[in-house]
């Protein structure tokens, strides 16, 4: 059963990684406009020729 010494921390750490990712999406404002994000996957072209990020600030302040 010594394998548990490794497996339990690993499983907890993996879970914590998921939690951290979830909290990051929250901070990043990714739940602000669920309806809009659902519609955006239908847009095919990148909207801005000047670069992917300059026109689409995902984060509210």
């Amino acid at each position: 059963m010594n394998i548990l010494i490794i497996l339990i921390p690993v499983s907890v750490l993996l879970g914590a990684g998921g939690l951290a990712a979830c909290l990051w999406t929250l901070r990043n404002g990714q739940y602000e406009d669920l309806e809009g994000d659902a519609a955006r996957i239908l847009l095919e072209d990148p909207l801005d020729p000047r670069g992917p990020d300059s026109k689409t600030p995902a984060a509210p302040e």
Partner: peptide, 20 residues
């Protein structure tokens, strides 16, 4: 909306919130 605004010099960034 975003395409119309993309080329304006007075606009630095524009993002539509469809839900709101």
């Amino acid at each position: 909306v975003e395409r119309v605004l993309a080329d304006l010099p007075s606009v630095a960034a524009a993002r539509v919130n469809l839900g709101a």
